[in-house]
Design a protein around this nucleic acid. Structure first.
Lengths: 244, 244
DNA sequence: GGGCGAATTCTTGTATGCAAGAATTTTTCG
DNA sequence: CGAAAAATTCTTGCATACAAGAATTCGCCC
């Protein structure tokens, strides 16, 4: 069972994570451990199905089992890990069915965000979101995927924040984890860049006009388009890798 | 600082929680601890703002600090507790603003559930939901609040389950915690009983007809009515208790 | 040589120990 | 007598020790 393809090279992955501060202060380990592990899972560095050995994680992260266990519990609750009783937790599978389920929920949530945001949109807020849009375009012209990715997320997040509904933001952040994970797992993105930018422009226009109905509808469709393309790409890849 | 009104009578509250099994098997403490604490918070037995002393909880629940701490972390993530660094966690405040924020999100989520459920409604599923509706009516005629409460929740949950979207169900369960908490905190319920039953009948009819648009709209409005009434009741009580 | 079973090892679940920071009390000085 | 400061106590955050269940390996028997 020790074929190189079977065991995850956790050591190598985590060695790249910089150890934050030797002279740290209390109360920071849980949060930082969660953040590190979450990043590994969302980016796909820890593949779906990978087993998480607590002792190994302790060694690599340089902390004891307590914060590691708490982090595992937290990420399990977020749906990124699956807990099996008395067995190692595993990275949650990323099945296409769940991403399809995400489409309806995320598009509805962002649609609501657009509706509320349009009603509250000030010139300043719209300008800020516009800036994020142009930042995204800049990264697009430079073919910088990570920057594009981040600006895109910031654009959406800012709209949700503008909606001014803390419960909505909370739910959006939970969903965003899974969306990000799905995005990282499919490198489809360059294909949809131009379309996404056009749709963002339309959304921005609706927000500027303060048209709640239109903003809601456009955000809903934008999210639906993006995730649907993602599902299509994953299905394609899944069929190509059939019967490996 | 030991005035009887200041210190929560945690001992009394938790003494009522039956100790599950002395000869228990592994892996059950975390879950049961979470369930017990969650119930105390949601029902309001642990009042908003109450401090949770880990050692005290250990004594009362008969477990060590490890599962207690994990339970606190879990409930914090669910938004039922607030964690302060190096200080006792406290039961999250239940401010009216947050419940108002809940209205938009929950009504939208249940609206989506109604839409998806209507599209998938089989005779069997509708019959099952109808049964829950009549169970609720039965508890209504008998003036049994807990039973009514439970049947009402089961009615809504079953519709969300019928929608067949696991992400939607996950989000709904998270939101339901806060909704239940808000409901327990206001004993307004008897006032809305009849109205709620009528609305449920309308929803059931839309599901039976398989009319997704209508089911969505009626569920959205039903949830909005319920939570709005709740907010009004809480505001009224808040004004009555002004400057206590 | 192969399959079944027992023993060992490994891994998670729970309890406890230790240290840093917060709260409280006591003490001291004005 | 009051207020500020120091010391004590208390509480949480992290680490580690111990126990129960799972996985693996080794040996035995067929």
């Amino acid at each position: 069972m020790d074929s190189p393809a079977d065991t995850t090279p956790l050591a190598a992955l985590l060695a790249q994570v910089p150890q934050p501060e030797p002279g740290r202060r209390k109360g920071a380990l849980h949060g930082s451990t969660v953040a590190k592990l979450r990043n590994l899972i969302v980016t796909g560095a820890l593949a779906p199905g990978a087993k998480l050995n607590e002792r190994e994680l302790c060694l690599q992260l340089g902390v004891s089992r307590t914060p590691v266990r708490e982090a595992i519990k937290t990420l399990t609750q977020d749906g990124l890990l699956r807990a099996l009783p008395n067995k190692s937790s595993v990275v949650a599978e990323l099945d296409v069915g769940e991403i399809e389920a995400l489409i309806d929920v995320v598009s509805t949530i962002e649609g609501l965000a657009g509706e509320l945001a349009a009603a509250r949109a000030t010139d300043e807020a719209v300008a800020e979101i516009g800036m994020l849009h142009y930042r995204m375009m800049l990264h697009h012209t430079r073919d910088e995927l990570p920057g594009y990715f981040e600006a895109n997320k910031a654009f959406h997040r800012r709209i949700v924040e503008l909606a001014g509904n803390p419960v909505l933001l909370w739910i959006w952040e939970l969903l965003a984890l899974r969306v990000d994970r799905a995005r990282y797992s499919s490198n489809l993105w360059p294909k949809r860049w131009k379309m996404a930018i056009q749709e963002h422009e339309q959304i921005l226009a609706a927000l500027t006009a303060g048209d709640a109905t239109l903003a809601s509808q456009r955000l809903r469709e934008h999210v639906r388009n993006g995730l649907s393309g993602l599902v299509a790409a994953l299905k394609e890849r899944g069929e190509a890798a059939e019967g490996r």
